[in-house]
């Protein structure tokens, strides 16, 4: 029974981790509440974007066909998907105590993939601004920059969080407190991947279809 039941979102540490597992139940749940409120923010931004997605919202400025580079979006999607799966490595290495070197290794893989995603995203933003697609040009562009930019900021803070966790693991070892923090980070990191599914589908692909 205990194998199948989850106390909180994300890969559960399991009974073997005793205190950390129990502490994570309330802490990760609280963090999940925060993420769901974050989801509402993203949802409202998606709605604004969809509302502006017509000739009036574009106000004579450049549109999706002029600005979006589907190849770059595909590359970003690949980076983020792989980054999300790589966090599975962190969770499993932590749960089955493969040692802190493995946990740090997987964390660095996640950070690198996240950074690759951000590199292409920022490159796209710069190209788009160069083509006259700056946020102040039209309502559609404002909502685009806000929504995609907010997600980018999330990924950036996720990378900072990962690096902070690497430093903490290196200094104090993989103790109970850090296990709970890593569980929260995992939920956050997978959540970003989830939001990106919405972004690449509805922000990029639907207008190009």
């Amino acid at each position: 029974m205990s194998n199948n039941s989850n106390l909180y979102p994300g890969l559960n540490l399991g009974d073997g981790h005793g205190e950390a597992h129990e502490q994570a139940e309330s802490t990760v749940f609280g963090f999940w509440v925060f993420l769901m409120s974050d989801l509402i923010i993203f949802g409202i931004l998606f709605a604004s974007y969809a509302s502006y997605l017509d000739p009036v919202g574009m106000a004579g400025g450049p549109g999706p066909q002029d600005l979006f580079d589907i190849k770059s979006v595909a590359i970003q999607t690949g980076f983020l998907l792989l980054g999300g799966v790589a966090y599975g490595g962190v969770s499993l290495a932590m749960k089955y105590e493969h040692g802190r070197a493995r946990v740090i290794g997987w964390l660095l893989v996640c950070a690198a993939l996240g950074a690759g995603f951000l590199f292409f995203e920022v490159k796209d933003f710069i190209t788009q601004a160069g083509k006259g697609g700056t946020p102040q040009v039209s309502g559609w562009l404002s909502s685009y920059w806000t929504l995609v930019g907010l997600h980018g900021v999330h990924v950036f803070s996720g990378i900072l969080w990962i690096l902070a966790m690497v430093a903490q693991i290196a200094i104090r070892g993989l103790d109970e407190v850090l296990k709970v923090r890593l569980s929260m980070l995992g939920v956050f990191w997978h959540f970003l991947d989830l939001v990106w599914v919405g972004i690449f589908s509805f922000v990029f692909l639907v207008p190009l279809a």
Partner: peptide
């Protein structure tokens, strides 16, 4: 997109839709 979101929730966030999940998570 819908199918992928469900996949992410099940396989990466480990939310179970058929019992075995802390009820508050799913309700939330």
């Amino acid at each position: 997109a819908l199918l992928q979101i469900i996949t992410h929730l099940r396989n990466f966030l480990h939310l179970s839709f058929s019992g075995g999940q802390s009820r508050e998570d799913l309700l939330l």
